[in-house]
Design a protein around this nucleic acid. Sequence first.
DNA 1: TTTACTGGTTAACACTGTTAACTAACCCAA
DNA 2: TTGGGTTAGTTAACAGTGTTAACCAGTAAA
Lengths: 199, 199
Amino acid sequence: MNEEIPLRDQILETSRHFLFEKGHSSLSMRKIANKIGVSATSIYLYFDNKDHLLHTLIEESVEELSVAIELAAEEANGPIDRFEAIINGYVDFAFNKPEKYQVIYMVRSEAMARYPKEKFRKARRCYELLVKTIQEGIAKRVIKVEKPMVAAYSIWAQLHGVVSVVLNQRLDSRIDRKEFLKESVNHIVEGFLVRTTVS
Amino acid sequence: MNEEIPLRDQILETSRHFLFEKGHSSLSMRKIANKIGVSATSIYLYFDNKDHLLHTLIEESVEELSVAIELAAEEANGPIDRFEAIINGYVDFAFNKPEKYQVIYMVRSEAMARYPKEKFRKARRCYELLVKTIQEGIAKRVIKVEKPMVAAYSIWAQLHGVVSVVLNQRLDSRIDRKEFLKESVNHIVEGFLVRTTVS
DNA sequence: TTTACTGGTTAACACTGTTAACTAACCCAA
DNA sequence: TTGGGTTAGTTAACAGTGTTAACCAGTAAA
């Protein structure tokens, strides 16, 4: 196909495209290779096996997601602002680059079980950032949670749940996607904030 | 294997077992058949194809989950009680029968994309129940949400997110599972309740 | 000019879902 | 009692899968 960009990148690119377009079950080494115009076994020059290829794909996406979140968090000042920036960063990434976000969870259960733990830890950069932000919020008495680490994990989980329902089109057709998202995220966020005024 | 129970049930049982034990990627028609002691093609006497088999598995689990939740909800009185009963019913089912709960989401993205929409609607029985409960709570001024239907969906999504993080062992080892669950569920619930007293 | 390495190739193996054609056992009517 | 039809399964085969082993052309260095 393209002579310029290295084969390894072409493989990753094509895989991601395939995965997102045709779904995970119809992603085969031979098809990837075919699309690129190369023999199937060439892939094994760059990846140990299909698992390794998928893991690399995940890793890439996780990295990009992390960067996106960190970037969003940077330009915020004050814990509440940063708190919201992180969450919105997550959601925005999921919807702006669904083909990358989806990879992280699409492959999940099967390949993920074999995903090396130490690589998974990479995703924790954002986790630490969120924890730090929460702790900061607690210190300034604007966020109220018992265990920041638990809360942070819970937030990721909830966010993923909400986002994936929308992305996988499992949402009731009577419900507006944007509204659902806004409302859900809002609920997640507000639950952790110290309420300012109560009527 | 067993001569008494009908083959169809044996297939489902064995499949579920396999799925939960060995993971989804190593679930093959031939292996299932082998385990039962029957030829692989016999499965096609009862299921159109592998997809159909998986869908049936999902359907069964969804039905059981629904029943469990409805049962839990029945013995509650008052909207708040029922609200909590539903949520706890969900979580309890997930942890008491993980091999059934997991099926619902394990197979997900790939087979789910082809899962017939009308069957999916079956799962909505619980959804309607939850919506009704929320509306009741609103009427009695103990629950406060803008859009009950949106909130209900959001709750499922959040619950699933939280539960699956634990089930898939993606939880940081420093965090206690039970505590995480309690805290997370608690946060989800409390977010919707009208706060009684604030210091 | 040989040697070793780089970046690929083809052929083959064991396994997958699925279909078509066959078979053995039973039930029931002639 | 024979024969036909249905039921519940079988075997053989096809196309496609991940993966390995063996091979090969070109380049760079000795």
